[in-house]
């Protein structure tokens, strides 16, 4: 079998299927990760003491332990207390927790960078505290958090490969299967790598464009280049 045949008829079709699973993982994780990040950040800054401590503890736990261990807990550990998740769902839950925890740190930082006077002013206009957070603080904070959030999104693309450790056949898993069967490790994993580089590079360019688009002159710093983001 010659190289071109192997590449186009065997490797690429399998990798494409894997790529679709990878994209699914990313697309399902990102919105929930963002929502979780916002909730946790708001809970930490504005929540009552127990809620704030709970959020802080959860973020510390998730950031301090490897994602791989978290995935093992969700997939192999939870059945012992009666919760069984499929490999795909367990990966999703793990990614959402990880993504949400890191997102919350960026959003929290952005929230604390906004002057407290703004909440007081909003309350003086008759808004409740919740309304002030929702309509005054969060819109500003989220714009400031965009650089951090987009970095996290790029990390998400890369750590989505860990789903393979729970037997989800995504891009890396598809590559591993073909590589093991045909004993072509260097070639296959270089092409898998190129797959990730394409995803990461497209996202990086999109991030640059978005950051430039939403930049508010005088409020956000703009103009990160490729290497700053990657």
């Amino acid at each position: 079998m010659d190289q071109a045949e192997f590449l186009f008829q065997i490797l690429l079709p399998v990798l494409m299927e894997g790529m679709i699973v990878t994209i699914k993982l990313i697309v399902f994780t990102a919105p929930f990760g963002l929502i979780l990040g916002i909730l946790v950040a708001v809970g930490r800054v504005y929540g009552s003491k127990p809620i704030s401590l709970l959020c802080k503890g959860a973020v510390g736990f998730i950031k301090g332990t490897p994602l791989l261990l978290m995935l093992f807990i969700l997939y192999f550990g939870l059945p012992s207390i009666g919760i069984t998740l499929s490999a795909f769902v367990a990966s999703l839950v793990g990614f959402i927790m990880c993504n949400g925890a890191y997102n919350s740190e960026y959003i929290r930082g952005a929230i604390s960078s906004i002057k407290e006077g703004q909440i007081i002013a909003a309350q003086a206009l008759g808004m409740t505290r919740m309304q002030a957070v929702r309509h005054i603080i969060l819109p500003q904070a989220l714009i400031r958090a965009i650089p951090g959030l987009s970095n996290e999104f790029i990390y998400l693309i890369k750590y989505s490969s860990l789903a393979y450790m729970l037997t989800v056949i995504e891009l890396t898993g598809a590559g591993k299967m073909v590589a093991t069967k045909y004993f072509e490790f260097t070639e296959v994993f270089m092409i898998v790598g190129i797959g990730y580089l394409i995803l990461v590079t497209i996202t990086t360019i999109a991030v640059m464009l978005i950051e430039r688009k939403v930049a508010v002159p005088g409020m956000t710093q703009s103009g990160r280049n490729m290497l700053d983001i990657l």
Binding site: Y159, Y164, T172, A179, M190, Y196
Partner: peptide, 22 residues
């Protein structure tokens, strides 16, 4: 930098362990 930051650790490990080193 682009290569080593753009690839997942898992892919790099497989690439080096099964591919590059052998």
């Amino acid at each position: 930098v682009w290569f080593f930051r753009g690839l997942p650790v898992l892919v790099l490990l497989f690439l080096f362990y099964f591919g590059v080193f052998p």
